[in-house]
Each structure stands twice: as C-alpha cells, then as structure tokens.
Simulated assay, not measured.
Amino acid sequence: MMSNLLTVCLGNYCRSPFAQLALARRGGPRMSVRSTGLISKWQDQPAHSAMINAARRLGYDLTAHRAQQITVDMLDWADSVLAMDASVLTTLRAVGGPENENKLRLYLGDRDVPDPMGQDDAAFNECAVLIEAGTALHIGGRFT
C-alpha cells in the first residue's frame, strides 16, 4: 500500500526539504513524500546553502528543491503530516481543521527538530543527522 507523507517546517527552506529526501530514500517506492512550509518567504527558492551542503555530506542531493507554502490540497493528499517542531504543529492544527487532526504529529515523536536558521554549519549538519535518524520512526526500525 502506498503511503503519502508530508513534512512541514516554517519556511520549507531547511528541515522539511531534507526530511523529504531522507524519508523518500528510506521508504522507497511504497512511499510518496512531499515537503512544504507555513510561510511563503522563500517561495520558489532553493534550500538554504548550508542545508544543501549538510545533505551532500550525507549523500543526498537537495539542489533541485524549491520552497513552497502549504495548501489545503497538500493536507488532503497526505496520510501523515510531520511537523518539525511544536510551534509548526500548533499552526497546522489551527489551519488543518478537525478533519486533519488525526494525521498531524511531530517528526521526532515527542521532541522538536531544532531550527538551524541563523546558526553555523555545524548546526545544519547536526540537524540533518537528526532528521536522517528520525526516518526510523516512520519507516521501520527504531529511533535511537
């Protein structure tokens, strides 16, 4: 059975685009993964250069990504909507309505993926490693 996952962060500029790639790789052909952001500040822009570099270090190519803002159609499409942090989850609950409540959750289950924006390359690298490890929560295996 095909599963549709939607990863969401604030701007679709750092965390959710990388989560999309990591989940798609781990999930393989039985999974369709998209990413989006709550705001349109980086609409149609590539991912943050530090996240592109962090992804490259882990063997992913994030250069084709272009940011997009969430739509109701995206929520309807998704079987699961994975928020990168609690503030994103709170906003998703407000805009998603009760019909989407059962599909909303935090990407790491009970904790946030820290936003690396405004920090150094090490923060982006740590963020990418955390996101990649977190794929186990959604596609077999265990998160350690």
Rank of each mutant, 00 (worst) to 15 (best):
M2P: 10
N4C: 05
L5Y: 14
L5R: 01
L6E: 02
N12E: 00
N12T: 06
Y13G: 02
Y13V: 13
C14D: 13
C14H: 10
R15N: 04
R15Y: 05
R15L: 03
A19N: 07
L21E: 04
L21S: 02
A22D: 00
L23N: 04
L23T: 11
A24Y: 01
R25S: 12
R26L: 02
G27D: 07
P29W: 11
R30F: 12
S32L: 10
S32V: 13
V33H: 05
T36E: 03
T36I: 05
G37W: 00
G37C: 04
G37Y: 02
I39A: 10
K41T: 10
K41V: 09
W42C: 05
W42H: 14
D44C: 04
D44Y: 10
A47R: 06
M51F: 08
M51W: 09
I52V: 15
I52K: 10
N53G: 11
A54F: 02
A54G: 07
R56L: 09
R56E: 15
R57M: 05
R57Q: 11
R57E: 14
R57H: 11
L58Q: 04
G59W: 01
Y60A: 14
Y60L: 01
Y60T: 15
D61I: 04
D61Y: 01
L62E: 06
T63Q: 08
T63E: 09
T63V: 07
R66K: 04
Q68M: 07
Q68S: 14
Q69A: 10
I70E: 06
I70T: 10
I70R: 04
D76N: 15
A78P: 12
D79A: 00
M84L: 11
D85K: 04
D85A: 11
A86F: 02
S87E: 15
V88T: 14
V88W: 01
T90A: 15
T90G: 10
T91G: 14
L92K: 09
L92W: 00
L92Y: 05
R93M: 09
R93D: 14
A94Y: 05
G96Y: 04
G96D: 06
G97P: 05
P98G: 08
P98D: 13
E99V: 13
E99L: 09
E101T: 14
E101V: 12
L104K: 07
L104N: 10
R105F: 10
R105W: 08
R105L: 07
L106K: 09
L106W: 09
L106G: 03
Y107L: 04
Y107E: 00
L108C: 09
G109L: 12
R111P: 03
V113H: 12
V113C: 09
P114C: 05
P114V: 01
P114H: 00
M117S: 09
G118P: 05
G118M: 11
Q119L: 13
D120P: 02
F124L: 00
F124H: 07
N125D: 15
N125G: 05
A128W: 07
I131V: 13
E132N: 14
A133P: 03
A133E: 15
G134W: 15
L137I: 11
H138I: 08
G140S: 08
G140W: 15
R142F: 13
R142H: 15
F143Y: 15
